[in-house]
């Protein structure tokens, strides 16, 4: 199997050089770009397995590059955000980033996040094709494909993983920690709103039930629940 390709986009050339070396040693095929415009173009051209992108970049910032990539690609994206800059983080997740890593971070932490996202976004081709069905919603976890009443849903990799876990447990509440472990490969930090942000964008995409209720219900202090009709 080919090495998974990773695109690193950051204007700090020294940092990119070191991370490139680190990730190459971890067994990835790393390519780099130093501003948002080149990064977005490269992400769409070379179709890497995952993109790691800094939010703060000259010329075209990470958020704008993210919008460009998301307009036509569902490649998993990890945003590097300044620690404490919640606004950027939430904005990134809302615009379809899969996860974020606060900067400065250790390369080991970054590699762990990359691994977690790649592991669950990689289609498992060696098992039997499986279909999950609840009401008019169908999921094909192997192909990471979802349909609502026969119409394909445009879900990012993380959104798919979250929805998959909810559907597998349809009718039962799933805790936020479980959701985070499954979709992001990490436990949820305190005051971390990542899961809520992802949930809100899934809700927007799948709409409501015929009777107007939201398909995904918030279970206070526990987590979320996918409703069986």
């Amino acid at each position: 199997m080919d090495k998974p390709g990773i695109l690193l986009v950051d204007d700090d050339k020294d940092l990119v050089e070191m991370l490139e070396e680190y990730l190459t040693n971890e067994g990835y095929a790393v390519s780099t770009a130093h501003d948002g415009a080149v990064g977005a173009a490269e992400a769409l051209r070379s179709n890497p397995a995952l993109v790691v992108m800094d939010v703060m970049m000259p010329k075209l910032g990470g958020i704008d590059a993210l919008k460009i990539i998301r307009a036509s690609s569902r490649v998993p994206i990890i945003m590097l955000t300044a620690k404490g800059d919640d606004l950027d983080r939430i904005l990134g997740l809302e615009l379809g980033a899969d996860d974020y890593v606060p900067k400065p971070c250790t390369p080991r932490e970054l590699a762990a996040r990359i691994r977690a996202i790649l592991r669950r976004s990689a289609p498992l081709s060696d098992t039997m094709p499986e279909v999950l069905q609840v009401g008019d919603l169908s999921l094909w976890p192997q192909q990471r494909r979802a349909e609502l009443a026969g119409v394909g849903l445009e879900l990012t990799s993380t959104e798919f993983s979250l929805l998959e876990l909810l559907v597998r447990n349809a009718g039962r509440p799933v805790s936020k920690d479980e959701l985070s472990e499954h979709a992001l490969g990490r436990s949820l930090a305190r005051f971390d709103r990542s899961i809520d942000v992802h949930m809100s964008s899934i809700r927007k995409k799948i709409g409501t039930l015929a009777d107007g209720r939201s398909r995904i219900q918030t279970v206070i202090r526990i987590g979320y629940q996918y409703l069986r009709e």
Partner: peptide, 12 residues
């Protein structure tokens, strides 16, 4: 961030 990357490399 570069310092952390460098220590990470040193470990690796």
């Amino acid at each position: 961030a570069r310092l952390q990357a460098a220590t990470g490399l040193a470990r690796q």
